[in-house]
């Protein structure tokens, strides 16, 4: 194996994951470098969500190798993996209904001291400031999505795993989310996006991993997107 680059934030190699008896991931290999935005593309059920979950140890069983910022994490419990500096935004958003917006925001414990302040977060998401006293269950889909992203920015996590953040949202909100991702990239966050909406992901990401049946089929850098477009369309079509 080559000596890893110094700016490697996430390395996954030969990752297998299981739910009960079902074998979902069959040896995922991918690497993400500091400050990159990387997407995992693929059809529904190809194993993209499971890849994010397996990185955090949220599957029943996993084997292989995962390192975050150079630290092997495959044998660590979920909360210790998160503490290295991982922020996770699940597909179902996971807003706590019994907590207010601000309680939801303040819930994830601070992992490192260099996270965004509450004021900076409210500046980035002005809606959340207006709704801060509302119960989590009373938010619209877009507001829930903003909250789910906002609450992992305060903790000092530098690797963000974002699962299907545009799913089911109106075009204006999708556009606003694109703006958010761009700002976060400018701030130096490293982001792994699981995305169904290729038009959303294409201009944002530095590289794209195509996942199919629990394996990485291909890796396409941003500048080679055009010449691969036809092949990609075929791979992603349902």
């Amino acid at each position: 194996m080559l000596e890893p680059r110094a700016d490697e934030i996430l390395r996954v190699s030969d990752l297998h994951a299981f739910y009960g008896e079902s074998h979902i991931l069959h040896g995922i290999d991918l690497t993400v470098y500091r400050g990159e935005v990387v997407t995992l593309l693929g059809r529904n059920g190809s194993g993209r969500t499971t890849t994010l979950k397996a990185i955090l140890g949220l599957v029943d069983r996993r084997t292989g190798y995962v390192s975050i910022n150079g630290r092997p994490v495959i044998s660590l419990p979920t909360y210790q993996i998160a503490r290295i500096g991982v922020g996770y935004c699940p597909e179902e958003r996971g807003i706590f209904a019994s907590l207010t917006v601000e309680e939801n925001l303040l819930l994830p414990p601070t992992l490192r001291s260099d996270g965004m302040s509450l004021a900076e977060i409210y500046e980035m998401f002005p809606n959340l400031w207006e709704r801060r006293k509302s119960q989590g269950s009373k938010l619209s889909g877009g507001e829930q999505q903003m909250l789910a992203i906002a609450r992992i920015l305060r903790t000092g996590a530098y690797l963000l795993l974002l699962d299907e953040i545009t799913e089911g949202l109106a075009p204006v909100i999708v556009q606003a989310l694109g703006e958010v991702i761009r700002k976060l990239k400018d701030r130096g966050y490293t982001i792994v996006l699981v995305e169904q909406n290729f038009h959303f992901a294409a201009p944002l990401a530095d590289r794209h991993y195509v996942i199919e049946r629990g394996r990485v089929l291909d890796m396409i850098p941003h500048h080679e997107l055009e010449k691969n477009r036809e092949r990609l369309n075929a791979l992603l079509s349902v």
């Binding site: 955090l56 979920t78 909360y79 998160a82 996770y88 699940p90 819930l107 994830p108 414990p109 903790t155």
Partner: peptide, 8 residues
């Protein structure tokens, strides 16, 4: 599970 994924 999610709370644990926040590092708790």
């Amino acid at each position: 599970k999610l709370v644990e994924a926040f590092g708790v």
